[in-house]
Design a binder for these strands. Structure first.
Lengths: 342, 342
DNA sequence: ATTGACAAAGCAAACGTTTGCTTATATGAT
DNA sequence: ATCATATAAGCAAACGTTTGCTTTGTCAAT
C-alpha cells in the first residue's frame, strides 16, 4: 500500500493540511522545524504524492495528450521525443495514441484524452490537409498542430520551414558551381512538395539562373519514381550537373539510376536529398541532405502548448528551419562529417 | 465547463448515484425507462466521465506507463504501436517516456508513473543487460520487459526469437543450395548477436554442413564493419556463395563490398540481412531479411501485463518468432513480393 | 487583567466518482 | 386493514489531495 498524506499526518502527529503545506506549499508560514520534521519523515517513508487525487483537486493533470499518425514514422518519433524533452522539464507527462490516418480513431483518442482531463493536446499531423471535426471535438482546451499550418489557427501550429530548407539545398549546389540543377518533386498535392519546389525556384531566381521547366520532374516520394525521374534528367542534353530530390528515398533512386547510366556521384552529377533519414549516412556516397527539424518542432510545440496552458498570448505560427547536412553526394570536399550550415 | 454527473442528476431530477448506475453499472436494477432517459440526456449534453475522479474512487487508472530508450528506434516505435493497439481495445491508455539509456532518467520516469498511479509499466529495453534498481523501484505493481529476457523474472519478459529467426535465414540459404555461407556477426557481447550466431550454427549442423570458423566474421552492427567483413569473406578461397549478415545495416555494407569487388548480388553471392529496416525494400537489389516481430512483441507485452493486472497467472516467457521476408538479394526467384515463411 | 496582534496548526469543504446501505413506493398475501 | 416483499431510487461515505477559514497559543502593549 502506498503511503498517503493522512498516514504521514498520523505518524507526525499533525493534521493533514500541515503535512500538505509542509511538502507542497512553500510560502505557507510553517515553523521551519515542523516543516523539516515532516519532510524528513516523508523522505523516510518514501512518500509519493498521488497525482490523481491532486489532479482532482487542482483541476490540472499535468498530462498532455499526443496523437501521431504512426509511431514508426521517424519524423513523428523524433517530434514526440522533442515534446517529451521539453514537457518533462516542466513537470508534465505525455499520453500517446496513434491514429493510423483514421479520423475516427483520432477523434476517439481526443475524447479519451479529454476524459482523462489532459491539460492540452498535440497533434502531429501530416495526413490532414484541412480539418473540421477534430478541432470541433477540441472544446476549449489548448492544442497544437505539428507539421501542417492551418490558416484558421495559425498561432496553434508549428511547421517545418520546407521552403527555406529547399533553399539551403539548392543554394549549396549553386555555391558549388552548378548551373543546371534538376529537381525531383514529391507528390504535387503535398504541401511539402509545393514548398520545396518554391525554395528551389527561389534560389535559381535569386542567382539569376535559367528556370528550365524540363529540369523539374514529378515523383511520388518513392524510390522507383526517383529512379525514373533521374533517368530522364540524366538523358537530357545538356545534362544537369546536379540533382535535388525532394526526399531521401527518391535520392536513393537517383543513385541507382546514375549507377545504371554509368554516372558517378558526385563527380558526374551532384546529389542532394531531403529529410535526413537514417540510411542517408549509410549509403555510398553518403547523402547530403536537409534535416527535418522534427525534434525542434516537438520542442516548439511543447513550448507553444505550455504558453497556452499558462494563459499567455501564444506567439505567431512557428516555422522551424531545417539544417543542411553536408556529406559526400554533393561533392563538397568535406569528408564524412556532419556540418551545420548557418 | 465540462458537464458532471451531479449536473446530470440535477437536470434529470434524480440522485447522482442513480445517474452513475444508469451510465456505468449495467446490472443494477434500474427502471429501464429511467436508465434510458438518463442515457439520452447524457448523450445530448455530451457528458464524458471524468477519469481522474473515477480513478481516485476505483484505485484503477487504466493507464499504463511505457519506457523506451529512444523514441526514434524503429523497433521501439513499432513495439509501442503494438502495445497501444492491444491496450486500446482493453480500455487502457498509455503514457510514455524515454530514458536515453540513462538509468537515472528511467527511474525518474518510473517514479513519475507511480505517482500517476499507473496500473502497470512496460519497459522496452535493449540497453540493460542486467537490472537491479529499476526493478526495485517497481514496488508491487505489474510490469513487463520487452526485448531482454531476464532469468530472475522470466514470466515478465517478452523477447524476439532471434535464434529461430537466424535459423530461418540460414535455412533459406541452404534451401537455395548454398553450402558455404558466410556469417557476419554483430557486437559479440550483445545477446542478439549471440543468438543469431547460434541459429546460424544450428542450421549448418542440422544440414550436415561444415562449420568453417573462417566464414564467421565479427562486425559492430555498422555499415563499415559489414563492408570490411564482406571484403574479407569474398577474398576467401573457396569463396562463400552466400552471406548472412546479423543486421540490415551491415548487409548494406556487404552490398557495397560486393560492388567494389565486382561481384553481383544475388548471382555471385546471395545475401540475407536481419531486422527488416525500412531501407531494406528500397535498396537494389531489395534485401531479403528477417523481420523483427516488434509489433507482435508489443501486443504480447500488453497481453502479459493485462493478465498480471487481472491477477491471472502469467504465461511463461514469451519468445515471438520473426518472419523471413524474401526479396531479391537472396536469389530466390520471387519478384518484389513480401512472402511469409511458415 | 484585558486586549490586540501575530504565529502556528487544525477543521472541513471541495474536486467527481462509486457503492454499501437505507428509505420510499408499489405490489401482493394474509 | 396489516404486514411482508420486491422494486426503484436516494443518502452519504470514501478515494487523497488542497486551501479558505477558524481556532489555539504566545507574547507584548495597554
Amino acid at each position: 500500500m502506498a503511503i498517503t498524506l493522512t498516514e504521514l499526518a498520523r505518524l507526525a502527529n499533525v493534521s493533514v493540511s500541515t503535512v500538505s503545506r509542509a511538502l507542497s506549499n512553500h510560502d505557507y508560514p510553517l515553523k521551519p522545524e515542523t516543516r523539516q520534521r515532516i519532510r524528513l519523515l516523508a523522505e523516510q517513508m518514501g512518500y509519493k504524492p498521488n497525482l490523481v487525487a491532486r489532479s482532482l483537486q487542482n483541476n490540472r493533470t499535468h498530462l498532455v495528450g499526443v496523437i501521431v499518425d504512426r509511431m514508426q514514422s521517424p519524423f513523428s518519433a523524433e517530434t514526440v521525443q522533442g515534446i517529451q524533452d521539453k514537457l518533462r522539464n516542466a513537470g508534465y507527462s505525455i499520453s500517446i495514441a496513434y491514429s493510423n490516418r483514421d479520423q475516427a480513431l483520432a477523434i476517439e483518442a481526443i475524447n479519451s484524452f479529454y476524459s482523462r482531463q489532459v491539460d492540452g493536446i498535440i497533434i502531429i499531423n501530416s495526413w490532414l490537409h484541412t480539418f473540421n471535426d477534430p478541432i470541433l471535438a477540441m472544446q476549449d482546451r489548448p492544442f497544437v498542430f505539428v507539421n501542417r499550418l492551418f490558416k484558421n489557427c495559425l498561432q496553434n501550429c508549428v511547421g517545418p520551414g520546407d521552403r527555406y530548407g529547399a533553399q539551403l539545398a539548392t543554394q549549396h549546389l549553386v555555391d558549388l558551381g552548378h548551373k543546371r540543377i534538376g529537381y525531383i518533386n514529391g507528390m504535387k498535392d503535398w504541401i511539402e512538395a509545393q514548398d520545396r519546389l518554391l525554395g528551389y525556384q527561389d534560389v535559381l531566381e535569386r542567382n539569376g539562373l535559367e528556370l528550365d521547366e524540363s529540369l523539374i520532374r514529378n515523383g511520388d516520394w518513392g524510390v522507383e519514381s526517383g529512379y525514373q525521374a533521374a533517368r530522364e534528367l540524366l538523358s537530357l542534353a545538356p545534362q544537369p550537373t546536379a540533382i535535388f530530390a525532394a526526399n531521401d528515398i527518391m535520392a536513393l533512386g537517383v543513385m541507382y539510376a546514375a549507377q545504371d547510366l554509368g554516372f558517378h556521384i558526385p563527380e558526374d552529377v551532384a546529389l542532394v536529398g531531403y529529410d535526413d533519414r537514417d540510411f542517408a549516412s549509410w549509403v555510398r556516397p553518403a547523402l547530403t541532405t536537409v534535416k527535418m527539424p522534427s525534434f525542434e518542432m516537438g520542442q516548439a510545440a511543447a513550448r507553444l502548448l505550455l504558453q497556452q496552458i499558462a494563459g499567455e498570448e501564444p506567439e505567431d505560427a512557428t516555422q522551424i528551419p531545417g539544417r543542411l547536412i553536408i556529406r559526400e553526394s554533393c561533392g563538397a570536399k568535406i569528408a564524412r562529417n556532419v556540418v551545420e550550415s548557418r
